[in-house]
Computed example of a mutant assay.
Amino acid sequence: MPTERGCALRLATRRQQAALAFIVACLAAVLLSSVHLTRRPPGALVVSIEFDDTLADQISVRSVLAEHRMHATFFVNSGALDRPGHLTVAQLRALASDGHEIGGHTLNHLRLPGLTASEQRRQICDDRRALLALGFAVSNFAYPWGAHDSVSTELVRSCGYDSGRRSGGLAFASCILCPWTESIPPRDLTATRAPGSLSRSERVPAIKALIRRAQEDGGWIQLIFHHVCDACGKYSISSQDFSTLLDWLAEERDAGRVVVLTVRQVIHGEVPR
C-alpha cells in the first residue's frame, strides 16, 4: 500500500516532469520563431549583376540590360580606359547615362596585398579621384582578384568608398560551412562576400541553381562577370548565355522572387521590404 511519503514523491516527480516539458516546449517555440524571424522569404533575394576589369566586350551587354530593364555595376580600372581591349571613356559615360553604376577597381588592376601602403593608397585613392574627375559618381570598390588585407580595407574606407567587394566567403566558392548569401546590410562593408568570379564552365543552369539555392535563405548575391564573348577566356560568358540568363532573371523578378539592384542601391538600403 503506497505511503503518504511515496505519493508525495511521485507527485513531485510528475510536477518536475511537467515543468521540464513546459520549458522544452518554450525553448522550441523560441528557436522556431527565431528561424522565421532571421530567414527572409524567397522573394527577398537581391541579385547584383557586376562586371570587372573595364573590358571592351562588356559594352555588348548595354542593349541586353536595357531590354530587360536591369542595371549593372561596372568596376573600372581608370588606367585601362581608352586602351586597346578596354572600354573607352565615351562608352563608360554611355553606360552611366543608362543608369548603370560605375565603381572603382584600382588604377592598374594590381594585386593589393604585398604592395607597399603608399602604392596601395595610390591604386585605390587615385583610381577613385580619376573616375570622379571624369564625372562618375563612384562610391563602391572591388578588390582585384578579390585579394585584400588590413591596409587595403582601411584605405577603401579612408578614400571615400562605401564598400569593398572581396571574392569568396560564400558556399558556392568551395566553402562548405559558409552561408549561401551575403546579409543585408553586409556583415563587413569593406569586404562584402560573393560567390567568386563566374567562369565559362558555369553555364546558365549552374547560375540558375546558385540563385535558386540562395532564394531559400534570402539576402544578397553578387554575380561577377568579366568577358562577354564566345569562349574567349576562362572567365567569360557568351552573349547568348547572358541574354538567356537575363530572360530567366526577368521572369523571377516579375514573379516577385528576385530583385535586381546595383551595388549602390544595396549599400544605400534601396531594397524593397
Rank of each mutant, 00 (worst) to 15 (best):
V64Y: 13
V64L: 12
V64F: 15
L65M: 15
L65F: 12
L65I: 15
L65W: 12
A66W: 10
A66P: 04
A66E: 14
E67C: 09
E67K: 11
E67Q: 12
H68C: 07
H68T: 13
H68E: 05
H68L: 05
H68G: 08
H68N: 11
R69V: 09
R69L: 06
R69E: 11
M70S: 05
M70H: 05
M70I: 13
M70L: 08
M70Y: 09
H71A: 11
H71C: 14
H71L: 12
H71E: 06
H71N: 13
H71I: 03
H71W: 08
H71G: 14
A72E: 10
A72L: 09
T73Q: 06
T73I: 09
F74R: 03
F74A: 02
F74P: 00
F75G: 00
F75H: 04
F75C: 00
F75M: 07
V76H: 02
V76S: 09
V76M: 11
V76E: 04
N77C: 11
N77A: 13
N77K: 03
N77H: 11
N77E: 10
S78C: 08
S78E: 06
S78I: 08
S78N: 04
G79K: 00
G79M: 01
A80C: 13
A80Y: 02
A80K: 01
A80H: 01
A80N: 09
A80G: 02
L81N: 07
L81G: 05
L81I: 07
L81A: 11
L81D: 01
L81R: 10
D82C: 03
D82E: 04
D82I: 01
R83H: 11
R83V: 03
R83W: 05
R83D: 06
R83K: 15
P84D: 00
G85R: 10
G85L: 04
G85V: 02
H86F: 11
H86N: 13
L87K: 00
L87C: 14
L87M: 15
T88N: 01
V89F: 02
V89L: 11
V89Y: 02
V89R: 08
V89E: 10
V89A: 04
V89S: 06
A90C: 07
A90Q: 14
A90P: 00
Q91K: 01
Q91H: 14
Q91R: 01
Q91D: 04
Q91L: 06
Q91W: 07
L92S: 01
L92M: 12
L92A: 01
L92H: 05
R93P: 04
R93A: 12
R93Y: 00
R93I: 03
R93V: 01
R93L: 09
A94E: 14
A94L: 14
A94Y: 04
A94F: 05
A94D: 07
L95P: 02
L95V: 04
L95K: 01
A96G: 06
A96S: 15
A96P: 01
A96M: 06
S97Y: 08
S97G: 10
S97E: 15
S97I: 02
S97D: 15
D98L: 10
D98A: 09
G99I: 15
G99H: 11
G99T: 14
G99M: 09
G99L: 13
H100I: 12
H100T: 12
H100C: 05
H100W: 10
H100A: 14
H100V: 09
H100L: 15
H100E: 12
E101S: 03
E101R: 00
E101H: 02
E101C: 03
E101N: 02
I102M: 14
I102G: 03
G103Q: 10
